[in-house]
Structures are given as structure tokens and as C-alpha cells.
Design a protein around this nucleic acid. Sequence first.
DNA 1: AATGAATGAGCATTCATTCAT
DNA 2: TATGAATGAATGCTCATTCAT
Lengths: 218, 218, 218, 218
Amino acid sequence: MTSQKSSLPIDPARQKPLAAPAAAVAKEPKRQRGIARVAKLLDAAASVFAEQGYKAATMTEIAARAGAPIGSLYQFFPNKDVLADALVARYGEHVTAALDRIREQAPDLDGAALADSLLDAFVTHAAERSLALSLLDARWEQPGVRPGVLRESLRRQIAECLAAWRPLTGEDERQAMAVVLLQAMKSLAQLHEEKRYPGKTEALAQWRGWVRRYLSEF
Amino acid sequence: MTSQKSSLPIDPARQKPLAAPAAAVAKEPKRQRGIARVAKLLDAAASVFAEQGYKAATMTEIAARAGAPIGSLYQFFPNKDVLADALVARYGEHVTAALDRIREQAPDLDGAALADSLLDAFVTHAAERSLALSLLDARWEQPGVRPGVLRESLRRQIAECLAAWRPLTGEDERQAMAVVLLQAMKSLAQLHEEKRYPGKTEALAQWRGWVRRYLSEF
Amino acid sequence: MTSQKSSLPIDPARQKPLAAPAAAVAKEPKRQRGIARVAKLLDAAASVFAEQGYKAATMTEIAARAGAPIGSLYQFFPNKDVLADALVARYGEHVTAALDRIREQAPDLDGAALADSLLDAFVTHAAERSLALSLLDARWEQPGVRPGVLRESLRRQIAECLAAWRPLTGEDERQAMAVVLLQAMKSLAQLHEEKRYPGKTEALAQWRGWVRRYLSEF
Amino acid sequence: MTSQKSSLPIDPARQKPLAAPAAAVAKEPKRQRGIARVAKLLDAAASVFAEQGYKAATMTEIAARAGAPIGSLYQFFPNKDVLADALVARYGEHVTAALDRIREQAPDLDGAALADSLLDAFVTHAAERSLALSLLDARWEQPGVRPGVLRESLRRQIAECLAAWRPLTGEDERQAMAVVLLQAMKSLAQLHEEKRYPGKTEALAQWRGWVRRYLSEF
DNA sequence: AATGAATGAGCATTCATTCAT
DNA sequence: TATGAATGAATGCTCATTCAT
């Protein structure tokens, strides 16, 4: 059972802060060839955005790195914002899928195993996640407002995992736990991403132990 | 027979004389009036950078928001990079000062009190810190390299606090602890910064409890 | 005791990543329309540079005078230096072609005729030449170094004409003669260019006679 | 006997092509200290203008190189144009003085000696002269108009030398000769200035011989 | 008078987006 | 439909000149 309702609710009508220009959205590719090209474009966009940031990245370079003409890029993504949104949405789908899987298995897991599952889900998508966040950050005037959408969605999904795991807990309790857990997952993912530094292995282990105990002692 | 070899040999590699990059630094204001103006400029820069990000922020808007002409801005900060660096340095000085104070008091504190001191130091500067990080991130091609400078410096200082607190611990152990603690401090600061969300108070309390126990059980 | 050593070590020397200078060159126009536009742009650039000098000339005015938008100018000439270089190169091609033609006919000419050919070649391109020189001059810090490239090339080509004309002369002798001849050609071209002044016709005739005798008596 | 009437007639009313702003002129220094400072300022200006060209040279650097505050520079030279004009005028005075001296001695010289005197006068001031020309060029919209003033003045003075030397020649003849001689003097000076190149010594000798014979055969 | 900080018009250059081909 | 040349608003930065101190 998959929860489509949990996927990222990015409201296209709010895409441009003011004077919404008739809801620009990425065009769905129809043919096989289009699907492959869109994937290539998104990958190129991801790498360029990650390297240079939203503003500094140029549409021209993204198209070039995908081996596509600039006109083709604009065929599928009518402007830079839509392209960034597509990347964020793609990340949203990935975590949603991962959390869906965890929620299904949750009833059979003990605290430590659930902790590991969640932690690993985040470590796996760490790079994609930090890109999504920076894209959201870069384009929103009131900082924190848009990333909030992503965060809330993730918290809700984690809370759903907890509900599946321990159905008897209260809604409020699960909500607070979801907040703590999400933060812990982000933190571990960050510590994991960072290249090499003194005490890395030990710190990672301590942090993971912390989370396991948090869920075990529950 | 024509001599192609005789055509003008203009060496394109020498095209730009490329004057010495000249380690540009912010100019210290001399007069009273200048000191006040520099503070205003830095504040304006902080708010514009925070709202729009490094690349999207314009020097013109920063100057305007400080009520200063563009030439004045450039008088003190010869380019956009220097301005951003000044902001980062200002944050660095602030935390350094806070951590210095904590280190001095450390010997007299128990674990819970030390945890509170550290946590509060970060919560206090949370906004400034996230700005500094995003500025560092935005300007470095190899992402993560530059923010590393900030992170390492903070970890070192936290480790020094621990050394002042429990002089008998091993260097390696303190290093790993510093990594964990810094991440915990950042996390709490983030949870604290976020506007309002279900479970905020409870989550904050749990997180703080976590850190207190981490230092107390040590 | 406070730790100054812990404050943020931001290395100012690394401030600008300094991407590879990238040998910028004028882009060849692909389409028919582009070729005509490039020609118009070069002509406009020539007239603006000639009137105002390299530094004082503005890209905006050059584009405007060519009836082209500024973006178009930058499409073909990625910066002001490249534009100036293109003008210099164009002059180089013109004289080179003229001197090539003279060298081919040289064996059949007597001294006076050779003198006339060389002199006329320079008079024809006098305006273009003085523009090229001033552009070279204006953009080089060590003045004289760059114009030297042009001068050397011309001297070499004149020496080649002399070699074709009188194959038995010594290399050194031809070199000195080329120096004298080039200077004489420039001088006549200058006297010729100048609007009107008392004694112009007579002076021109004397000068030309000088050069003819120089080659005839040889 | 010195000819004040021959000194450079730069009309201050024409200083700015349009809307003459009440004839700005360099202020005469009154005291001893002022005279020394003006000399230093002019020397600094000469070197900066020579290195970077009129437009690229900055008033700030000129003042700095003279060890004077910028305000002091503006005290004596109310704007950049006036400063450049002062340099041109200084060159004019120098050659005028040299040519005055030659004219006085002319009656006692033979052709070769007169040629040598004139040639040397120009070689001596070659650098100053090329600076003056480039300054004139750089600031005048209609190219050639202003340098013309300098050229005409020099031709007139050379013609006066010739008149003192051979009083019986006709006015027209002297005028044409002056044109040829001036051009020859500029040419020799240029060949002389240039660093090192194959055939330099030989070319210089040939050129000088040319001029000597020109005056001797007369 | 002497100084040098402050000012802002002006310039080179970039890049998202369009539209002729 | 697909392409990529063309467009011009917007941005970082400079520097002659002024004027408060």
C-alpha cells in the first residue's frame, strides 16, 4: 500500500510570489525519447545546481551538460523555477517512497531496527536532500516558509511510521517524536556526508546509538 | 605563393594582463561616522543576504537599505566577496567570544549546566550562524570545503571547552564529543528558530534533555 | 585567558577561485546574417575606437552605431579586448595580403616601382593602421611591447619582399633596409593622411622621391 | 633672443568641445613650496599617463605617486583635462626652447650640423613628445585637429630655423622642407626610442645620413 | 588652506527567455 | 517540432570631483 496523498504538496499556484503567471509547470514528456531526455536534463540540472547554487547556475550550462539544446530544455521546463521545483519534487518522491516502505515494515521492527531504517533512508538521499533544501531556500523571499512545506510533509510521514509501529501512542506524542527524529536523521546524514574529520567514525556511532536508544527506551 | 606564416601572431593566452589578485580586505573606518556607517552596512548586508542569498542579493539594494550611496559601500567593502567575508568573520567573533566565556566557567559547571551554556550560546546566534554558513556555501565552488573552515574552528573551540571542563579525558575522545555536541547545538538552534509547529515545546525539551544527559553521564 | 588563535582563519589569497582565463576569441558567425552583422560591428567599432580611443569608447555606443543590440555585440566579441584584437587582426590581414602581392611582383620591378608599390600599400591602409597601433598601445601596460609584434611582422614581410627583389643581398642588410623602409612608409602615410597644410604636395613629392632614390641607388 | 610668440598656442576657451565651463586653467603656484609640488605632480602625471593612457590613468594614482593628497592635486589642476593640457604645454615649452637655441646658432652651421642639431633636439624629447601626442589624441573628438596645433607650431619654428639659416630661400620652399624635416625628426626619434631590434644601429645611421644629405645638398 | 572620505553617473558584462528558421 | 542566435534589463564596480572637517 502506497500513500500518494503523502507526496510533496507543492502548490503550483504559489509558484511565483506575486502575479502568478498562469501556473507554469513542467511538461510531462509523452514519448519514450522524451522521458529519457527529461531524466538527463534533471540530472544535469541537479549537478549544476549542486555545484553553483540556484542563482549562479545557468540554463545554458544545464542544457549543455545534458547534451541538449537550450530550446529543448525550455520545451519541458518553461523557466528556471519550474526546473528547480521539479528537482525538489523528485526528491520528495524518493523519500516518500522510502518512508512508505518503512511504514509497511514498521510493525515487525524493534526500536533499534526502526531507528536504523529511518537513519539509513536519510543517509541514502543525503545529497539529494541538501540540494532540494538549498533550491527551496534560494528561491523564497521569506526564508523558511517553503522549506517548511518539505519539512512538514516529512514529519507527517515519520509520524505515520510511528503510528504504524506503535498504534497506541497519542497523536501529540508522535508529533513531537517525529520532530526530534527528523532532526536526528538530518544530523546523522550531515555528519555522514562530510568528507573526513577527526572522530568521524566514533561520532557517527555515538549519534546512531543515541537514536536507537531513543526509540528503544520508548 | 602566399605566406600564411607571416600573418599577425597575437597570443590569446596573454590577452588579459591579469594584475595581481590583491588580497582585498574590508577597510577599517577611521572616523566616528564611518564606524556607525559600517555597522549599518553590515546589518543591511546581513538582512539582504539572508533574504535573497549571496548571488541574488544586489549591492545596490544593500546600500539602499543601509541608507548609503553605492560608492560608500564600496569604500569600505571593495567587492561583494569581501562584504560576505566580513559578515562571516563577525559571526566567527561572536561565537568565539561566547565559547571563550564558557571555557572560562567550564571548570565550575556540572554536565547539565555546561550543556545548557553551549546550547544557549548557539541558540542566541542561530540566525547569524545560518547566514554565515549559506554565505560560505554560496561562494565556494567545491561545496563543503569552505564551510569546513568554520566547522573545524568551532569543533576545536568546543573541544577546548571540554578540555577545560574535564582535563583528564583523551584528546581523541574530546574530538568525537565535540563533533557530536556541535551537531546537537546546531540542531537545537534550528528547531528553536523555526516559527511554530506542532510539538515544538516538547521536542525542544526532549532534545535539550538528550544533550544534558550526554554530558552528565560522561 | 582568551584564545585569539581560535578566531576564523579566512585565507584572503584564495578569495577568488580565479577560473582559467580562457583564451577568449571572436566567434565566427555561422549564418549569412551573422556575417553581415559582424562586418557592421567591426566597422562601428573601428570608427568609435578611432574617435575616442580604446578606453573611452563604450561598448554600448559601438553596438548602437552598428544598429545592433548590446547582446549581439557580445555574442560575437565576448569582451572589449577581443573586439580590439579583431580589428588589429583585420588590419594585419589587409597589409599582409598587400605585401604578399608586392612580393610576388617584386622580381619584375625596378627600384622606383618597388618604392611606389610599398608606399601605396601603406597609404591605402593608413587610417586602419594608425587605429590598429593605438589599440595595441592602449591595451598594453608595458607600452611598446605589443605594437612591437605588429612592427616586427611588417618588417619581416618587407624584408621578404626585398629578398624576392634582390635575392643576393645579405640578411642583415635587408633587415636594416626593412626598418628604414617601414618607417618611411609610415611617414609618407602620415603626411598623406593629414588634411591640408602648406607645402603638402611638395613635401609628399620630396618624400616619395627620397624613397625611390633609396631603392634605386641600391 | 627668444620667441615667446612661438610657444604653444593652446586656446583655453576651446578646452571642452561644448559648453566651455568658464576656461579652467592650471593655477599658477605662488610660493616656493607650491612650485616644487606642481613639478612633482606633473612628473607623476606624466609617468601615469605614459603607462596607462589618458582615460585609464586615475587622478588618485597620480596624486599618490606624487606623494600628494588628492585635494592638493585639484588645487592646482581643477580637472583631469587641465592636467593633461599642462603636460602638453610643458612639452611645447621644452621643444620651443631647444628650437630657439638652434635658430640662434643656425647661421653658423653647415647642413650636416644643422641636421644633427634638429635630430638631436627631437631624440632628446622623444618620450615627452609621444606622451604629449597621445594626450592630445585621447581627448579630442575630431582626431587630428588638436595634434595639428602642436604640429603646426613645430613646423613654423623649424621653418624659422631654416629662414635664419638660409635667409634667401622662398617662404613656400621653407614650408615644404619644414614638413619633411619634422617628419624625419619624428621618425628618427621613434626608431631611436624602440628598445632593440635587428638592424637598429645601421638603420639609425642610414636615416641620419639621409637627413644630413637632404640639408647639405640644398 | 589642506585633506581625503563621500558621492553617483556611467561602463563592461551576463543570462533568462524568446522566436525566426 | 526542434534549434540556438538574438535580445536587453539588470548587476558589480570605477573614479572624477566635491566639500565637510
